[in-house]
Simulated assay, not measured.
Amino acid sequence: MDKYVLDIFKDHKALKTLNKWSILITLGAFILFYLFEILLTNTTGPALLGWSPLELFVSIILIILVIFLIITVHEAIHGLFFKVFRPGGNVKFGYSRGMFYATSSGEIFKRNEFKIIIIMPFIIITALMLLMWFIIPHASFKYFLALHTGACAGDFYYLHLLHKHPHMQYVEDTDVGMTMYERHPEE
Rank of each mutant, 00 (worst) to 15 (best):
residue 44 T to W: 01
residue 94 G to L: 02
residue 15 L to S: 14
residue 57 F to Q: 12
residue 17 T to R: 15
residue 129 M to P: 01
residue 165 H to Y: 07
residue 18 L to S: 05
residue 1 M to W: 09
residue 176 V to S: 09
residue 185 P to T: 12
residue 132 M to C: 10
residue 66 V to G: 01
residue 39 L to F: 08
residue 96 S to P: 00
residue 75 E to I: 05
residue 78 H to V: 05
residue 136 I to K: 08
residue 25 I to F: 07
residue 42 N to T: 12
residue 171 V to P: 00
residue 8 I to K: 10
residue 38 I to N: 12
residue 81 F to P: 00
residue 77 I to W: 00
residue 109 F to L: 00
residue 61 I to N: 07
residue 101 Y to T: 14
residue 32 L to D: 04
residue 108 I to S: 06
residue 37 E to F: 01
residue 58 V to C: 03
residue 145 L to E: 06
residue 81 F to A: 03
residue 36 F to T: 10
residue 90 N to A: 15
residue 70 I to L: 10
residue 94 G to E: 01
residue 87 P to V: 00
residue 126 T to K: 09
residue 140 S to A: 15
residue 73 V to G: 02
residue 181 Y to M: 03
residue 183 R to W: 06
residue 128 L to V: 06
residue 34 Y to E: 14
residue 167 H to F: 03
residue 181 Y to H: 08
residue 76 A to D: 02
residue 46 P to F: 13
residue 58 V to D: 06
residue 68 F to C: 12
residue 118 I to G: 15
residue 21 W to V: 04
residue 38 I to G: 10
residue 63 I to L: 12
residue 117 I to R: 08
residue 134 F to W: 08
residue 61 I to P: 00
residue 82 F to W: 12
residue 183 R to E: 10
residue 67 I to V: 14
residue 111 R to H: 05
residue 123 I to L: 15
residue 32 L to M: 09
residue 35 L to Q: 15
residue 9 F to Y: 11
residue 177 G to A: 04
residue 3 K to C: 03
residue 77 I to C: 04
residue 115 K to L: 06
residue 170 Y to E: 08
residue 73 V to L: 09
residue 161 L to S: 11
residue 47 A to F: 07
residue 54 L to W: 04
residue 58 V to M: 04
residue 165 H to A: 07
residue 64 I to N: 04
residue 85 F to V: 04
residue 85 F to E: 03
residue 111 R to K: 15
residue 147 L to N: 07
residue 14 A to M: 13
residue 16 K to I: 10
residue 37 E to N: 14
residue 109 F to P: 00
residue 170 Y to T: 10
residue 78 H to G: 10
residue 166 P to C: 07
residue 19 N to M: 12
residue 114 F to R: 09
residue 101 Y to W: 10
residue 142 K to E: 11
residue 107 E to N: 04
residue 23 I to A: 15
residue 34 Y to N: 09
residue 28 G to F: 01
residue 50 G to Y: 01
residue 135 I to C: 12
residue 117 I to W: 03
residue 3 K to T: 15
residue 127 A to E: 01
residue 121 P to F: 15
residue 43 T to A: 08
residue 176 V to L: 06
residue 5 V to G: 02
residue 124 I to D: 04
residue 152 C to G: 08
residue 64 I to T: 09
residue 43 T to M: 01
residue 163 H to G: 14
residue 48 L to M: 12
